[in-house]
Amino acid sequence: MDLLASVFDLIITGLQKPTLGFLLGGMLIAALGSRLTIPDQVYKFIVFVLLMKVGLSGGMEIRNANLADLLLPAVFAVLIGVIIVLLGQLVLTRLPGIKPADALATAGLFGAVSASTFAAAMLHLDDVGMEYEAWVSALYPFMDIPALILAIVLARMANKKDPSKRNQKSVTVGYVIKDSLQGSALSALLLGLVLGLLTRPESVYDSFYEPMFRGLLSIMMLIMGIEAWQRLAELRRVAHWYAIYAVLAPIVHGLIAFGFGYVAHQVTGFSPGGVVLLSILAASSSDISGPPTLRAGIPSANPSAFIGASTSIGTPICIAIAIPLFTQLAIAVF
């Protein structure tokens, strides 16, 4: 009974936090048919400020960090991205009613990273007082880009086996890298990293980006909640296996990354908070920049399947369950 009570307590505390509260609030008003929308331009601005803040704090920290420490987690991030896609392909293509292209696009999206989920995880660690290396944000592209490339390349190879589709033109690896780096989220993050590293942005960081972060993230969560509910209707029209995959994938992917993070902790002293953030990078699935890249790269895949799985189930599960779960796991393990 005591254990049940403490789990219940944990859930209630989680629900009262702005991150999860606003996410569920967004889902609730969308479910009730509210016409509340956050304008596109506001949403884009929020993504920019969040990622710029994450990038700046990372860049400012890299100045004083030993770059060799970054190497092993970066290699692990690439490996995790690759493993997630291969695992997703292995599992999804074996399930009934799932086309190879849809399976690969879904696996690619789950291998890619959600910037807003990552920001929510950083905030959670700040709240519980767990320290982490701010340069972990620099790992984002190392996981995101290889996962997207691998999914698209595998889909193209599957297409080549199909004689009717052999002559079709498809995008190149170079295109995927360029398209990912030019995406709004990664551009802001990388610019922030460079500015944090090469300039002295402390005054704007302390007076603007840092204080804005929590408030803007709460609006971002509301938008994601609305989007999650609206995408659910589309997910209902595709195989139910996507929903089951989307529930389990964040936890399984997070656990794989936690294992890699543990090794990095043993070898180079990667912090427990860093291990949690690496797990969340793996657990999260891309909501903003990944879908258009995959759409262009695997046009035969049905967006209702891969975006529905990621945005309506993967992201809420990641925020509501994976973030507190891996934080607790880190507290228990380290």
Binding site: M224, E227, D287, I288, P291, P292, P303
Partner: peptide, 8 residues
């Protein structure tokens, strides 16, 4: 209703 993904 879908402000998140411009490309679609």
């Amino acid at each position: 209703i879908s402000p998140m993904i411009d490309g679609f």
